[in-house]
Amino acid sequence: MKRFRDPVFALIVYGIGLIIISFGYYFIPNDLKNIVNYISITGTFSSVYGILVAYAQIMSVRETAENTKLKIEKSNKRVMKILSVSDLSKAIKIIPEIQNYLSADKDESALMRLKDLKGILLNLKFIKDIEELTSDEKFVDALNELSIHSANLSKAMMGTKTGLNKSKIISDLDNIENQLNEFEGYLKYGNYD
């Protein structure tokens, strides 16, 4: 159908059709052979052919539009995937930073980075294309653990609650790092499209 968008091709087909019609005209009874009937036959052919070409062109344009839409969607998905991988890499890099701050008793900095980490993971939840990954129980658990740890760290800093176990935060962060690495690998190299 796409070929009918080419005027030369459409004209060639029209010419061939006209020759076939003229050839057919040769076989009609002699008393019907006159210029009016010839014009009427070729006119009918031209009209029908015109409608068919118009239809073919409309279909072809629609097909092209749909293909373009699909390509745009695919490219958007790819961009979102790249952004997600980049956000995950950023999150993974923050984890050792938080662990170092906690080990060095720099609680304010640790809390700030914990919140950054939570923010990045939370933003990933709003990317529809990776919804399957972010609605995974492990991801939900990681977000909740980060929230619990930041609340506890914040309360310990304010002095409303004592008895914070920083080594538990550090070990949980190790687990979260492993899970995020798994997600990143899946997005990068898995069949996630």
Binding site: V140, D141, N144, I148, L164, N165, K168
Partner: peptide, 11 residues
């Protein structure tokens, strides 16, 4: 057990 000695959580 959470990161507080006395806190428990369930996912």
């Amino acid at each position: 057990k959470s990161s507080r000695e006395t806190e428990y959580y369930v996912h």
